[in-house]
Design a binder for these strands. Structure first.
Length: 352
RNA sequence: UGGGAUGUGGCCAAGUGGUAAGGCACCAGACUUUGACUCUGGCAUUCGCAGGUUCGAACCCUGCCAUCCCAG
């Protein structure tokens, strides 16, 4: 009996090719586009319309699924809340955890389908030895998105397909051409999807109705160097936008919500050797009794760095072999062993 | 009011007769399914103002203005 796969289609090249590949492999495929938020951009060619056209060109039924409520609650509100608390959240990670592989997967299963597929560049492999589903890096290292998927549970992984995992971006574009897809050359998406103009601070202020208050930029010795435009506009390691002229570049080295100050200093002050990770999800193993060696990523576009990881419950302590720059609370830490994701979590705090 | 010092782009700052370094900031691109970082490019027809000397001045001369310091 052929499996019925719900394929998330955004209207972009990746998800369209993913759907096409599944069709070619003989799956029964239904396309689905998530309605995540009300777009105030009425330029006719919406992503949903693009996705519907793409599905139609592949001869697939297509569903538009209203996910505005969960997206608002789990992604947008949480994003704003995290920033107001002084963290620097990664909404894509949270969206994957709660909306795409939460809400949408549940929806697929509820509709009687067998699996959910997306255009993510990552691989899932069932390991006979351990009886666990493994999440692995994509074949195309430059496009690998396994970092964004560390939160997936065994249950979620067992019902998920990543048809693009073994391909490179060039392969995908070439396939799109060969399938005659109109979006073959569509530019890769970027920025936060619900903040298309990139001004996430203004978005947060509109969403919450609270204006982030100006405060002082202070140096390590307490000297006030200037006024900042609101805590949410800064993140650890940030250089641009400080407006402080000095004889050398200055970076944000800390944020203090309690007195509304932003600490700035030299780049050397940004390095940390240890960090605590919360909400840890282990994928490759059920539990870790002993400290393990792993390569740890602290941001999406970052080379994993060797470290020793000690897990206790859903908390992990990570000690890097070499100090890491601007390890930022709210971002995700993902532990790799070779190409396999051991697990991951959210960075809670760091120590020198 | 005397004495001294200084005035170069938003900030700092090289340059002391040969036709405006550099850093910071800022702007624009690139990179990127997060925020950042990074990279590339842009950014003073002009050196407080006005005269003068010179083939030629930010650099020399004169005057003025401004700021700072020290006097009382």
């Amino acid at each position: 009996m052929t499996e019925h796969v719900l394929t998330a289609m955004s209207g972009g090249v990746d998800s369209t090719v993913a759907a096409a590949l599944l069709v070619r492999e003989g799956y029964r495929v239904t396309g689905a586009t998530l309605d995540l938020f009300d777009k105030n951009a009425p330029h006719g060619q919406t992503d949903a319309a693009l996705a519907a056209r793409a599905a139609q060109s592949l001869g697939l039924p297509h569903l538009l699924i209203d996910a505005r409520a969960p997206f608002r609650q789990f992604v947008m509100d949480a994003f704003a809340r995290a920033y107001l608390a002084g963290d620097t959240p990664n909404p894509c990670v949270v969206c994957n955890a709660t909306v795409k592989f939460g809400f949408l997967l549940d929806e697929a299963l509820r509709l009687g389908m067998d699996k959910l597929a997306t255009g993510h560049y990552a691989q899932i492999e069932y390991d006979e030895m351990s009886g666990r589903y493994l999440l692995k890096k994509a074949a195309d290292d430059a496009k690998d998105q396994s970092y964004m998927l560390w939160s997936l549970s065994q249950q979620q992984l067992s019902h998920t397909l990543f048809p693009l995992g073994t391909l490179t971006k060039n392969d995908v574009r070439a396939l799109a051409e060969s399938f005659g897809l109109e979006n073959a050359q569509k530019k890769d998406s970027q920025d936060i999807c619900f903040v298309p103009d990139g001004d996430y601070a203004a978005f947060i202020e509109t969403l919450t109705g609270k204006v982030s208050q100006p405060g002082d930029f202070v140096a390590a010795d307490g000297t006030v160097l200037g006024r900042h435009k609101g805590l949410i506009r800064y993140t650890l390691g940030q250089r641009r936008g400080l407006g402080i002229s000095a004889d050398r570049p200055l970076y944000v080295t800390g944020k203090n919500p309690s007195d509304n100050t932003v600490r700035v200093g030299d780049e050397q002050e940004l390095y940390a050797t240890q960090m605590t990770v919360r909400d840890v999800n282990l994928i490759a193993v059920e539990t870790l009794e002993q400290p393990v060696r792993a390569d740890v990523k602290t941001r999406y576009s970052h080379t994993a760095s060797p470290a020793t990881v000690t897990v206790s419950g859903d908390i992990a302590h990570v000690e890097f072999d070499t100090p890491q720059r601007a390890v930022t609370s709210g971002q995700s830490a993902v532990f790799y062993q070779a190409d396999t994701v051991l697990g991951g979590g959210f960075i809670a705090d760091t120590q020198q």
